[in-house]
Design a protein around this nucleic acid. Structure first.
Lengths: 231, 231
DNA sequence: GTGACGGCTTGACAATTATCAAGCGAAACA
DNA sequence: TGTTTCGCTTGATAATTGTCAAGCCGTCAC
């Protein structure tokens, strides 16, 4: 079962450079599990038992406090999540639930920490991964603190547009979750889409048409230091 | 000059476990510099030349966009900053300026990356450090997205109270900067302090008196997964 | 088909937060 | 001792964002 995905996992930057022996050791305790949609994989506050790798499907990372909930990120194949908690052996700061039918590889946390301690190449790969994650969260914080919700939506759409390469694309998530991810209510998101119509956006259901990129960019003022996923 | 602080640096978790030879190599290219208050040490977007270590004084990390500015964090001795940018050799996401007269050690980025590649213990220490930073930023994001500004202030005061160990303490930063750090305007912070008076807070200038911790906690609902710096 | 459900939208309204302008007061300075 | 400066506070007002309630409209099960 696991063997079918072994190569996908090995190809991840995180595992590509490590010793074959280390990789084998990691795979020995690992296994694959399939989940239906909307299953909670981990709950914030729990102690990390496994490093998770999304093989197919997608996973929502979210957090709650005082009866409120917010979507923090979406994990898409093939990538890991909650690496930091696993390494530090500290409680999860976020919960995770499947958004759709998903296949997930589970690597026992203790194995990960053991190999981390013994395989320098693996340790270095983890550094790169964590640095990447850290910088992504910093960018997100800048987005939240420096922009209004309308500006956040505008820049989100520009990022999607760039990612898709086409001026016309579908939102990859429910609007309610997009709203939560952008730090606003669904009602407000609905109005924000309306508010972007004078800036070159047309919306039809989950279909977005950027019919005037220049106008949208003039309004959104995208910045490499907030909106570029690379760098 | 550098020698006087060599031990302080070596005692940092980041450098404590590395090979003596690696540490020597790092120190060889390093030097100490003194800065007056309000000097900009680095600017976001620049390429990292040095890993910075605050030896004394304090440094504000902040970001700007579209004419707006927000304070992201305060670095106090003895600790490093912009480690992620240094390791990835990617542009700074934040700027840094001294808040007061400060002493800073500068380690050439190339040296740091070279030792990172050759010394496994150093790589592992960097992992721990980055994981810590990552989790801190995630907590900050939760604070921003899940709480109102009044709740953020209340929890900030509780954290300070806990840190000081006394129900009475001084704010460690200008209120305007605290406002920016908490994601609000100075005017709003002023009103927020007033708004916390019914919840056990008294304010006299920069002096804070928590005269009813229970009431404050009842309102603030602090959470380990947002407000604890350790874990 | 038909009805129920759920997500999205809309409108009215309320709460939160920001902006602008003015004034206060402590520290710095002449 | 006055004067200036600067950060903080306050009030009035505006903008932004959230809440509540209702309705729309697709999907899906029966």
């Amino acid at each position: 079962m696991l063997d079918s995905y072994r190569d996908d996992i090995r190809d991840l930057d995180l595992f590509a450079g490590m010793k074959q022996e280390s990789f084998e050791a990691l795979m020995r305790g690992a296994y694959i599990q399939n989940f239906p949609p909307r299953i909670e994989l981990i709950s914030e506050g729990d102690t990390p038992d496994f490093l998770h790798i999304v093989i197919s499907g997608s996973v929502d990372l979210f957090s709650s406090w005082n009866g409120r909930e917010t979507s923090m990120a979406t994990v898409r194949p093939v990538s890991t999540f909650i690496l930091a908690a696993t390494i530090k052996n500290a409680p999860y700061l976020m919960s995770a639930r499947t958004l759709e039918k998903s296949r997930v590889a589970l690597l026992p946390s203790e194995d990960v920490r053991a190999i981390f301690a013994s395989d320098g190449a693996f340790a270095r790969a983890i550094v790169t991964e964590l640095a990447q994650c850290y910088r992504a969260v910093v960018k997100n914080t800048k987005d939240l603190k420096l922009r209004t919700s309308l500006e956040r939506l505008a820049n989100y759409l520009l990022r999607q547009q760039r990612h898709n390469g086409s001026p016309e694309f579908d939102l990859r998530m429910e609007k309610r979750r997009l709203a939560s991810f952008l730090g606003m209510t669904p009602e407000n998101l609905s109005r924000a889409f309306k508010g972007l119509e004078p800036h070159g956006i047309k919306v039809a259901g989950s279909r977005i048409i950027v019919h005037d990129i220049v106008a949208l960019e003039r309004f959104a003022k995208p910045s490499a230091l907030i909106d570029r996923y690379d760098s």
